[in-house]
Structure formats: C-alpha cells, structure tokens
Design a protein around this nucleic acid. Sequence first.
DNA 1: GACGAAATTGGAATAATTCTAAAGAAGGCT
DNA 2: AGCCTTCTTTAGAATTATTCCAATTTCGTC
Lengths: 142, 142
Amino acid sequence: MSTHAIHSDALAQKLADSGLRNTPQREVVYDALLTKRNHPTADEVFARVKTQLPGISLATVYNCLETLVQCNLVRAVNFERAPTRYCPNLHPHAHFHDETTGTTHDIELPENLLAKIKAILPPGYNANAIEITFRGKMPDSR
Amino acid sequence: MSTHAIHSDALAQKLADSGLRNTPQREVVYDALLTKRNHPTADEVFARVKTQLPGISLATVYNCLETLVQCNLVRAVNFERAPTRYCPNLHPHAHFHDETTGTTHDIELPENLLAKIKAILPPGYNANAIEITFRGKMPDSR
DNA sequence: GACGAAATTGGAATAATTCTAAAGAAGGCT
DNA sequence: AGCCTTCTTTAGAATTATTCCAATTTCGTC
Ligand SMILES: [Mn+2]
Ligand SMILES: [Mn+2]
Ligand SMILES: [Zn+2]
Ligand SMILES: [Zn+2]
C-alpha cells in the first residue's frame, strides 16, 4: 500500500466524519500539501494541482483548502497580512518565518511548554487555539 | 505636566531618533492609540482622529501608524486575515482574541517564559520577533 | 523669503479572498 | 433505470484592506 493510499483513506474518513463527500479535487489538493510540505499559498497549491487536474478552478482550491481546515486535516497559517499558507502537520508546532528567504518552517512544540504557555491566561480565559510565530533569520539559509 | 505631554515628548524623541518630523497628524494618531487601548483598526483610528483633526486622510492614518510601528512605539497585531490592529503596549505580551465579542486583550508574558519559548528554536534559528496569539472565549464576556 | 526635503492628501490601483448564480456530479429511493 | 435532492465545482464579479501615485502643503534651513 502506498503512502498515497493511506492519505486518501485518512481524507475519506475525515470527510465522512463531517458528512462531506470525497472528490477528486479534494484528494488532489490534500495530496499537493502532503507531497511538498513547504507551507504553500492557495496560488501555489493551484499551480500544483493544475498539472494533475487541469480543469480545476482557483475557487475550488480555496473551497477544498477551507474544507480540509474544517476537517482538522490542515492548518491555515498566517503571517502578518501575507497570503494564507497551508500546513498538513497536525502535531502541535510553532512557525518560524525566515525573513531572508520568505520560507516558513515548523518548530516542534513540547507538550509541557504548551501547557506552560496556556497557564499564563488569567482565570476565565479559555483558549481553544494558540498560534506561536517567530520571525527572523537563519544565518545559513540555503 | 499632563500624561498627554509626557506622551508627546516620547513621540517627539523617538521620531527625532529616526530622523523623522513631528506632525499634528502623528501626535493625534499616537494619542488616539494611548487614550483607548482596545487594539483599534486603522479605520477605527481614523474615526477617532477625525474628531480632532477633521481634514486628516485615511492614507495619512496608515502612514502615521506605519511610522509609529517603525519607531517601536506601537505594535501591529494581526489575527488571521482580519484588518491589522494597533497596540501601544510595549511590554512583552501575548494577545487573546475573544471569538464571542471580537475583542482583543493583552496577556502579560513573563520574561522567563519568553526565554523558554525562544529555547525551542534549533541552533541556527535566530528570532527577532515572537507572536503569541490565543483564540477562544471568556465565559463571562461583558 | 526662497529652496529642498519630508509629509499629507484624494483618488486610483492592487490583490487575496469571498460571493454568486449556473452547471455538473453523486447518493438515495422507488 | 429514472427521479429527486443535495453537495460540489466553476467562471467571473464583487469585496475590501491596504498601497500607490501625483499633486499640494508644510517644515527646517539658509
Ligand atoms: Mn501522499
Ligand atoms: Mn495621552
Ligand atoms: Zn506548519
Ligand atoms: Zn496588545
């Protein structure tokens, strides 16, 4: 069994859980994110999936990405007002935005640190999502 | 001496440090942020400052806000793709976005925790800014 | 008071995303 | 199989926060 099939099954399962249909468009969009995990924008995903499904529209790419986010298969990642990027890494992680290259990198976030961060919230504040973003340079960006 | 004057002096000082001029527009924009620290958008700042400087333009409000950010007197705060909000709190702090009310609140960030968060970066990653944002509900939002 | 640089202004332009309305699948039922 | 309903996709228009532009105004200096 290829990893591709494994992913398709995970997608079909999550879609079914949400009462949504599986479609070629959703499969190819999800696969585009999994194949090259460099936090692409919707436009970049559009370019990738057109090679596999030439008739797909940009609106559909936006629709599919939104669906994947709703299904908790993908995270939308925002940095300042730049175009939204998409990340299929489901582990708790922070993002590092390299100012030199414009690239975005995952930073593993230890569970205990996540708990410590949540603990700074005063009583009554109930968070259901945390975003941690670094901006800076990697001295040897290549 | 009023707190107003103190702030004007801080502004004049920082502008001079950056080789920029002090102007009525910059003063009134900065004062609008200091007077009601609820993370207003540029539009909201525009509405406030028009009462004091009726001829001011929205473009100038954007220009002044950008200048204040460059001078490190104000932080630009982004939440997903919503309009940028502006915060004159210079202490290290996180932001909590209340989904119920749409309001944004400052969360003090202890210095040692900030250090621990920076420590998760692998060697070679050099961050010069960190954004920490919570999204959730305050049970008794009023 | 003239000069050059910096700042402001109104309006046009930009660009990511969302909306809309119509056409195209798909699933369930008989 | 045929019908019905619902979901999905599609192309293009609309939205909107922000930026850009060219023309004026203001400011500091000589
Ligand atoms: Mn795959
Ligand atoms: Mn004041
Ligand atoms: Zn990621
Ligand atoms: Zn703040």
